[in-house]
């Protein structure tokens, strides 16, 4: 595994758009070539080296390339966007679109991420050790495919609209979440280990949502269908099981109507 280290040397006055910060773009390149890759500030293009000191070099392929951002990049968008392999470690906070449409590899952010992390991702893993913003694992505007595969883990809290239009994969939030969890969800699993506010599973077609804490206000479209004992992400316990959203359309398979499932821990 070859490591490329980016040390932030200048805070962008406007936000930086750096969709080139990913193992796929760094693989097979020397430090100087990497520093030459472009980033954008508004309508102007700059070399990456203007904002970061680059050390090390990329591996032969993305899978053999590790990118380490040694500092805070809370004004840098699109880190790890569309990456397919390798790894990215951010030692501070990151701005919007971390790992958006990511297909594979691993991203770890030691701090917080802003909105739209893991948007439309199909594979790979995102670990946020701080808090995540809104639209985690959601769909891009107008798209009916949110997160479709992979895993997102958040050690802290997450914002609103997580897993909107989610169709696969897993989102695990250790802390609390804001309103709208799994809206229009049509597959995949969302696990909230803290509390959720309200609008959980609205317009949900299928998939699963687990909430360990409380839901302040339940959606009226969920019906209690019984209790189950299950192990969820290493925690076993008794959960009340609800089906819904009863107002929404639902597919039929093998003569059976498929509903979304909401599990509330006792």
């Amino acid at each position: 595994m070859a490591t490329v280290t980016l040390k932030p040397i200048k805070v962008p006055d406007l936000r930086l758009e750096a969709d080139n910060i990913k193992p796929d773009a760094f693989a097979g390149k020397k430090a100087a070539e990497i520093a030459d890759l472009h980033v954008y500030c508004g309508n102007s293009q700059y070399p990456l080296g203007e904002f970061f000191e680059v050390a090390g070099e990329g591996g032969a392929t993305a899978a053999e390339t590790e990118v380490v951002i040694d500092g805070d990049v809370s004004r840098v968008k699109y880190i790890g966007m569309k990456m397919t392999a390798g790894s990215v470690l951010v030692k501070g906070n990151a701005d919007m679109y971390v790992g958006a449409w990511m297909e594979g590899g691993t991203i770890t952010v030691n701090g917080d991420t802003d909105a739209f992390a893991g948007m439309g991702m199909t594979g790979g893993e995102i670990n946020v050790l701080g808090n995540a913003g809104n639209y985690l694992g959601a769909a891009y505007r107008g798209d009916w495919r949110g997160m479709q595969g992979g895993v997102i883990r958040v050690a802290g809290d997450a914002g609103s609209d997580i897993g909107t239009f989610m169709r696969g994969g897993e989102i695990i939030v250790n802390g609390n979440v804001d309103v709208h969890v799994g809206t229009h969800q049509e597959g995949g699993t969302i696990i909230v280990k803290g509390d959720a506010k309200s609008k959980v599973g609205g317009q949900m077609v299928e998939g699963e949502i687990y909430v360990f804490g409380d839901i302040e206000v339940m959606m009226p479209g969920f019906q209690h269908i019984g209790d189950v004992d299950v192990a969820v992400d290493g925690v076993s316990g008794r959960f009340a099981c609800y089906k819904g959203d009863m107002g929404e359309r639902h597919p039929r398979r093998k003569g059976e109507t498929i509903y979304g499932k909401l599990y509330l821990k006792y």
Partner: peptide
């Protein structure tokens, strides 16, 4: 949002 959902139900 809850009331609209309830109408659909």
């Amino acid at each position: 949002y809850e009331l609209l959902t309830a109408l659909r139900v």
